[in-house]
Amino acid sequence: MTRLGALLLLCCGQALACEGISFENVWIREPPPGNGPVAAYLTVKNAGTERAVLKDWRSEAFAHVMLHATKRVDDRVQMLHQAELAVPAGGSVVLAPGGMHLMLMKAGVPVVAGKHYRLSVSCNGASATFDATVRREETSTP
């Protein structure tokens, strides 16, 4: 039994480490012309029983991906880099315009509405992937 447990851990440990995590409402804002960074938004849900820590966001389509938070101080805004995203067991975290977002930098190809991109993230040490669709934003800042 112990051998079987060790074998299971060896073969499936990475998948189990990210169990219960799902990525919903994922979208990338179609950027205006220019070579500036692009924002991606999503909801991370954790249906598992362990707190999930997400970091090292990546995408083959972008040279660099960072998690940022837009912080409001009076009527001023600051962008603050976040080293990791903690999602409590049974909880969720929303990345939305005006708040936390993924900053996708240096796209290899033009980012236009309708295109899909795959992103990955380290989730409690395991790798998880999800897809994002580019769309044009027409709504007010939440």
Binding site: G36, A39, T70, M79, P97, M103, T141
Partner: peptide, 17 residues
Amino acid sequence: FTHCPDICPSTLATLKQ
């Protein structure tokens, strides 16, 4: 500024509305 990925495009989208 154009390298502002979150608030600036959102605000200009709002101003369009």
